[in-house]
Design a protein around this nucleic acid. Structure first.
Lengths: 202, 202, 202, 202
DNA sequence: TAATAAGCGAGACGGTACGTCACGTCTTGAA
DNA sequence: TTCAAGACGTGACGTACCGTCTCGCTTATTA
């Protein structure tokens, strides 16, 4: 699982590493501050002070570069700092998390990045798989841990899988975020959690 | 709500009507048979046998053209032929509908079209609103009618809004379709409906 | 003899004509003021205020463009104003002409253009043929007319062909100009003519 | 005359000597078998199995490398093996030599090399001087020796300089070779010699 | 003989130009 | 008058070379 459109050179030297970092950060910055069609490889290269060939040497697509850029960002500031609380009250814990997700999606920078990621994922199946693996899968894993605890204490139906439970809670937010079918606020997050917990109760 | 990127000439003559139809059908055909980045205005014009200026005279964006094209398609073959069944058994009715949705999404042509629509919606907020209004809103209305009946017979919690209920059922499918987090089949549709009905039960 | 790398569009419109002229004059200007490797299609397009695609639509090579540019220039200011004098004294007439050629080659602009033409002619046989036809052949024709008169009056050996006689006079200048084997001045022109006339005397 | 773009390291070790030879021969081979624009420093380095930095360490320009390569070639197989015959019959002797030149120019390899040299000489004055000094000057010297003998025996006009006499014979061939104004064969060589000798007769 | 530094091949780097394609506008010729 | 056809200026595409640089590795000397 290494030949998915990234990092051809196995040993990044000092100079290479500078170029790589500059490219990733330029991509992030441009994706945030420009309409996505203007986030071109040319613009990223110029902003990063890097040759276009260097970009294409490392990433086959703009999509691959963007996914790496977002992964790079997440490595620095993990969303929700990497753990779902477990106070014993599943509904309260999930409410806190989904409220945090709502808050994140309200940050224009993250909103723009995520929309860009979705565009690339929709356009190219391979990039879609990469997005799933590197951006969503970690989140699913986080939720899965909390669900396991809830199952152990009998708070949720043991027959529901992790991904299914994850989608029960996150998909409505994702849908509303992407299609803007309504206000995406704490109240909605709470309502989604309330209904989700009812759906999962044993 | 008239300057949203469509139909500037209000009275299409005979000749321009032919051009309009040809453009819409060319857009549909290309969106289905080519990767989306290759569905260019030039390609659509060429396929339709229409001048590029004619396209830009009627639609400002490729997105606006595509939305019209999908609306044009839906006008011919309405999804689920325009009504949600009401046998009195909400869960059975919704299962039938969501299974149909799953089947639709499995058709490559519709899958490709919907992905293209989502790309445009993600890239441009105005197109997003148009997609919502013309593609998703009709669906929500369909569901709303069935929900109203269910509320009247006391089968679901009266305090849950139509959009919220819609998202409870549709968002998981949408999420799984877009991100390919797992198999999108009848079993998943049934499970989503089962959990949704539990969540909505009074 | 029309498909030799120029003028694909048979009827140049008003806008096209402006683009064509601007391109030709930009090419001339750049070939004169820059080292030849910097006379790029990109630079010509920029200087002409013309799209690169427009250049490539009309000329396949930089060479083809340059040949047209020089022909365009020659159409305006014919070298030696289009006729070789005939005072009855062949040696004097040719001296005057070759001195004029020497003077022309001393003009940096024409020197640069001619070197550029030779580069293109050396690199690509097809361009070479075009250069011969459009730049040198007219000169040969001019000399041929004068040689015909000289043959008629018995001043030169009737068995020597026009091209051979032309080369007898012009080749030494060309050789010295290109390889800088010595001073290229009026004295040299006179000496070349003197020897050439001796060689051709009946 | 040492900083003209060649041999900066005065003491080539064994390893670097191998690199030098490999580079020169790769340059020759590529100049013969490819169109000249494809004879790039990269291609030469690759063919020679040599680092690009090694090329640039020894030669500043592709032109300097090419001139050295041709000189390297000439060192092995001297053109006309280094002497112009002196049978006492100047015209016959020169005919033999110019026929040999014509034959050389008919060899595609030498034709290609000489065109490449001329391109470099035309593009860069410094390279032009180098070409003159290393490729043409030795030829002029050869002719000069024969002219001196002819002058001593009163066969040619003593007032004509060596370079002028050289150009009288060689320039027409050069001109015809470069511009392809006509057939470049033994007959033409003979005619040029015949006329040249008449021009030079005392 | 072992370390040590110089020179090498390899090739990544920041650039620039290539030749192509699509953008959205504008002009022309035919219907 | 409207339309298809397509040229126009613009600018991004992905590639190839430029000339410089940084790597390890090989060599040839110096301790």
């Amino acid at each position: 699982m290494d030949d998915d459109g990234r990092d051809r050179p196995p040993v990044p030297t000092g100079r290479s590493e500078r170029a790589r970092t500059a490219a990733l950060e330029a991509a992030l910055a441009l994706a945030v501050e420009l309409p996505y069609p203007q986030v071109t490889m040319e613009a990223i290269a110029a902003r990063a002070g890097v040759g276009k060939a260097t970009l294409y040497r490392r990433w086959r697509h703009r999509g691959a570069l963007l996914v790496d850029a977002v992964a790079h960002r997440n490595a620095r500031a993990a969303v929700g700092d990497g753990r779902i609380p477990d106070t014993g009250d599943l509904q309260a814990d999930l409410s806190a998390v989904l409220r945090a997700v709502v808050d994140e999606l309200a940050v224009p920078a993250w909103d723009a990045l995520l929309r860009a990621l979705c565009v690339e994922a929709l356009v190219d199946t391979a990039v879609g798989a990469q997005v799933l693996e590197e951006v969503f899968a970690p989140q699913i894993t986080l939720f899965a841990r909390r669900f396991a605890a809830a199952r152990a204490t009998g708070h949720i139906d043991g027959s529901v899988g992790d991904v299914e439970a994850f989608e029960l809670f996150v998909a409505p937010l994702f849908h509303r975020w992407q299609l803007r079918t309504g206000a995406l606020d704490h109240a909605y997050a709470d309502a989604v959690v309330r209904r989700g917990c009812r759906a999962l109760s044993p």
